[in-house]
Design a binder for these strands. Structure first.
Lengths: 116, 116
DNA sequence: CATCACGGTATCCTTTTTGACACTATGGGC
DNA sequence: GCCCATAGTGTCAAAAAGGATACCGTGATG
């Protein structure tokens, strides 16, 4: 996917592109999606998304945090405890995520995934 | 960006991911966006998106075509003439594109692009 | 005859992204 | 003492995406 996440400053990219830049990344969308339902801890996310590796999950979470879409809260506890929540800004992406979900539900399963 | 465009069959990917897989690619979104306003020829697209290279534009157009989002029509004319139009399916992505555009307009320009 | 536009291809190279795997600190349970 | 869970980090390497550049055939144009 596009390589523009928050690094490039004003890239001519129209709003659409810049938005895509933020949710791009093999796992970001899933993470945001899971977080729509509430706060989750690192390993809870891992369990919800079995195919993601630790390194990747960490990485994507860091980028999402850097882009201000999620909030990372560390509790200075004995067994580490870190929670991830959507920031207001992240939550505001809900319409976008839902538009994508609805489109996918309507256009992808029966025609391609299953026909393949 | 995710690497899943139409190649992988059933990837567990929730609808959201699969949708992202199709519009992912540094230029696909812009192309779709430009085509929302009507049919365009290859070089018209190039001129509308100055920073894309020929190779990349061809490549993205081919993927969009393979995913059934656009229709490529070749006119067997003397100076080649090829037109690209959104397929009904491609046009149905409009809500998604618009959701992204609106979010981007509301969240990206003033806070980041310009503050940077 | 040389050049331009059209709509690409082909080849090569660099940058990004992703993945595998090992390793860490701490405290609790057995 | 040894292993488990938590939430990572670090290193290395493979794979994918993107970019630069050159080339193709045709017909009109100069």
């Amino acid at each position: 996917m596009p390589r523009m996440s928050s690094k490039v400053p004003g890239v001519q990219g129209c709003a659409v592109e810049r938005t895509l830049g933020l949710i791009d990344g093999k796992w970001k969308i899933v993470v945001l999606y899971k977080l729509l339902r509430g706060t989750l801890r690192f390993n809870e996310l891992r369990r919800l998304i079995p195919s993601v590796t630790q390194r990747m999950l960490t990485h994507q979470l860091r980028e999402l945090e850097a882009d201000g879409l999620i909030i990372r809260t560390v509790y200075a506890q004995v067994p580490p405890r870190v929670e991830y929540t959507l920031s207001p800004r992240g939550r505001s992406l809900e319409p976008v995520l839902m538009a994508m979900k609805e489109w996918g539900d309507a256009n992808l399963p029966s025609q391609e995934a299953q026909a393949a």
